[in-house]
Design a protein around this nucleic acid. Sequence first.
RNA 1: CGGGGCGUAGCGCAGACAGGUCAGCGCGCCUGCUUCGGGAGCAGGAGGUCCCCGGUUCAAAUCCGGGCGCCCCGACCA
Length: 567
Amino acid sequence: MRFSRAFIPTLREEPSEAEVTSHKLMLRSGMIRLHASGVYSYLPLGWRVMRKVEGIIREEMERIGAQEFLLPSLSRRDLWERTGRWEEYGENMFRLKDRRGADLALAPTHEEVFAEIASHEIRSYRDLPQIWYQIGTKFRDEARPRSGVLRGRQFIMKDSYSFDTDEEGLKRSYELHREAYLKIFKRCGLDVVTVKAHSGIMGGSESEEFMVPSPAGEDKLVLCGSCGYAANVEVAASVPAPSGGTSRPREKVHTPGMRTIEEVSGFLGRPPSKLMKSLIFMAGERPVMVLVRGDYEVNEAKLEGEIGPFRPAEPEEIERITGAPVGFVGPVGLEGVEILADETIRGQVDLATGANLEDYHWVGLEPERDFRVDRYVDVRTVREGDGCPKCGAGLRVLSAIEVGHIFQLGTKYSEALGATYLDEKGRAHPIVMGSYGIGLERIVASVIEQHADESGIVWPISIAPYEIYILPVNWSDPKTRDAAEELYGKLSDGHEVLLDDRDERAGVKFKDADLLGIPVRLTLGRGLKDGKVEVRRRKDGRTWEVPLEDAAGKVEEVLEELWNEVR
RNA sequence: CGGGGCGUAGCGCAGACAGGUCAGCGCGCCUGCUUCGGGAGCAGGAGGUCCCCGGUUCAAAUCCGGGCGCCCCGACCA
């Protein structure tokens, strides 16, 4: 491609709308433009990268025997009602009506649609297993799109679905995906961490996420540096830091206006770890009190696992249930409400919490001695420095981007949609399903987050929009031009080459070349009078002066090394 | 959905909380000359419904009301 004819609208200044590195660079390099909040147009350069990623994914999916489909984005209401997700997805699903008033959704994912096909077409155990996939557009009306392409309302995903006769088969399909995913990320030049995850609205048992550590990420990842334990903070366990204290009789103290942990802690002169948070949640109509040590937060994903869907109680409800206003509630003497205590409360002495009386707190509390605990559970959010649940070493908490998620769904969808098969004895069983997703633009953005410097993007060779950037310093000089044209012709046979034939100053070309992040640059400039050209590697700036006639060979050599890094 | 910020030329911004002499700056774009290995210099030039609608006023980018859009924090989220 000749730069003079290419549509690559680079920006020399940072667009004010962008915050994170990948977003800024994707705009500046002319990969994308905003169309609406969370909705982007892919310009040629950006689309080239997306297609490279798509190609890698497709190869690895085909390698595990997956077959490509293309399913519709418009989806019938009744299908989603049969699995309960028409309701469950709520505001996050784009909905529309056709001219007859029939309800349709823009599909946010395709479990239902694939499962429905399976329900119609798969009849016998002989038809199984199957792995089906597609690469297509998903729609989710996110409450807050952000970080450019990282959380969009319209995005491209590779989603696949496995269909097996039993759990054992599911595990095999799941493992195939896990390995394929690791290859895909490796080939895209991404370092990922695999973590245990929360299944959420997808349902099912086992689920793992593929995370790219990055400050731009929205997820929190818990990592043990010594044994390798890794989990999403939504499900991570830990050994809490000890809090000490000595047993004493309980005592009611006057704490006028002291409601928050900070206020009570300061007023009573005791650390938050010697306080106890007493929180009221509503699981449907049923109130539940949750107790957790004052220096920890309740983890909503974990709590949902214990009590099902819930919401925090309203202030009026809290007062009705405990007789005290928010900030002064506690478990002592509380009847008719289930009391769950986080493990951080077990065996504690001298805790302080609300006395169910305005302006009063208890101190010196001990669980079971002073208040009832119906169940001990793990519902706290892990903190940096907590002990690893496996080896006890200190845990780290990092931000990360979720680039892939794999689920062992089981029979949730097949049962709801009647997707069954007949076994050898003619008995019907629900098909056992798995579902597996990779976000394409998240891969692209993550790669930029991991591979960029002050000057711009540093593409891994495998997904670079072009492999070689030929930079003739002075395009109006005939000798330079001839040499550039010759190399362009030679290298274009087998490679994707961008020839900067613009009549621009050298500085402009260098800046653009760095910004675009093409892995290998070939500069034709002052050395040319001695028959020399310069080969430069984008990632580390290493350069080689070589005779013009050896240039193509040297480029091939550098490219080969770059390819070796992503194989 | 709560909180905050913003919307003026293609991009980045000033002007507004003192209404008029306020349609501005830098970059980019076009023309010419010079320059030519890290976002050139000089000269000339094009380009704007000041987000939209309504109101106040002799007069509105500026004040008031309503709306739309974008970004950030939080809630939310496979």
